[in-house]
Nucleic acid binder design. Structure first.
Lengths: 235, 235
DNA sequence: AGGTTAAACTAACGGCGTTAGTTATTTAGA
DNA sequence: TCTAAATAACTAACGCCGTTAGTTTAACCT
């Protein structure tokens, strides 16, 4: 498995392309991924990039995958590193880490969520597995939370309409997890809640209303967890 | 105030530009707003468009304003047309209309929320008033909901941390409305919830989990309202 | 009817992604 | 070790894009 010299060079070039792309994306926005600009900053001719990615969209897809994994890594270390056995704390940490990652890596967040780039549409067979990793982590965390004995299902979730219950159970079987429908619903709803708050903040739609959206976010997540019986430390 | 012939022509040209732009946006995505393509479809030369909008961004801004107003109109007619005095029903209708509008006008939704277009950044002095119209409507609806005697503030919202409360009260005074902080928080949180669910659905992130996201959305909004004491009819 | 104004045009600049064809360099096999 | 294959760089070019400058045609007002 020893690499030849060319293979080593090729790998570093791959890395450099992605790195420069990331840098330009961070400086000038998601849509500013320009092969010509990347090439020029690297001191090479634009068409040469086609030896590495067969199109601009392919490069974006590579960045997208890295973004998904970066988010998943962040959530994992933030939640799984919590030394307590309190599932609520772990969930809390994960949701806070979600916002934190999104704000720190706003272009990656735009890449993941929404349709951030001109003609680009993410190929499903690529993004789906990456997204599943994150979903899987939240399933794990909610499963742990479920097993806490303070955990309760809020009154308004005790009766789920048949149609929705069937969908949730179909998903449950497909994924091979053991969460009851109400908890799956909670998972999805809280995910939407978190993403909604983050994107409102990130895209400036809260600017007129809140000076420090973090307190809003934190309080809402805390309330959400309190609703299911999981209270979280004040710091 | 009688218009000259030229003024009439000018107005219809303005309208045609926006219409063609909308059409191309709907067909090929938000980012496909191309002055050259618009001009060619209209049978004129691209630079002539500069007699109407001083740049591509200006055209986008015009579309953005129309989108905001279209959404606001939709929400108004959906909610204010509810013939009951049940504030919960009106809120429910507004939230359902929100999703419905977003799905029917997905490119406009992308325009409003997020940063959908290459170099484009919406000028705040333009978008802020338009956004305020929608916010104002929700404030009105929540104010009405507040006055229902079944309305209750959920336990987890009764104690708002000082920092957040101050922010909410600052907003309250600035806007000249009379909603208590907990209700303002509810307003923002439910807005984030709705937008989060819609964007998850619209950008395909629920595809692996739910076949019919409408039932999910409806149930969650219903639960949200039930949580504040407002139960909503089954249809 | 003639002068002014507005709206169309053409030509051009510099940017973009991408393809085709070419040249130099590294690798692998005889 | 010498040679043939494969790889990675290059240049030139096509057809898009937004935008500017300069020019011509048409509509308006007096």
């Amino acid at each position: 498995m020893t690499q030849t010299r060319r293979e080593r060079l090729r790998e570093t070039t791959f890395a450099e392309i992605k790195s420069v792309a990331r840098q330009q994306m961070a400086e000038q926005g998601t849509a500013a991924i320009s092969l010509r600009a990347i090439a020029s900053q690297m001191g090479m001719a634009a068409p040469s990039l086609y030896n590495y990615y067969k199109s601009r969209d392919d490069l974006i897809t590579a960045l997208l995958i890295e973004a998904f994994n970066s988010l998943a890594d962040t959530l994992e270390t933030a939640s799984l590193a919590i030394p307590t056995k309190n599932g609520g704390e772990k969930l809390f940490a994960a949701y806070l880490a979600y916002r934190d990652w999104a704000l720190r890596n706003s272009t990656d967040f735009s890449l993941i969520t929404g349709s951030p780039i001109p003609g680009y549409h993410a190929p499903e067979n690529i993004t789906t597995p990456a997204a599943k990793r994150i979903m899987g982590l939240f399933q794990l965390l909610w499963r742990e939370a479920c097993s806490q004995n303070q955990f309760i299902i809020p009154a308004e979730y005790t009766e789920i309409p048949d149609g929705l219950r069937q969908q949730l159970e179909a998903w449950k079987e497909f994924e091979g997890n053991y969460l009851p429908p109400a908890v799956l619903h909670l998972l999805l709803a809280s995910w939407a809640q978190a993403q909604g708050m983050v994107s409102l903040e990130l895209y400036g739609q809260l600017r007129n209303n809140l000076k420090e959206p973090f307190e809003f976010y934190q309080f809402e997540i805390r309330s959400l967890l309190k609703r299911v019986g999981l209270s979280v430390q004040n710091n």
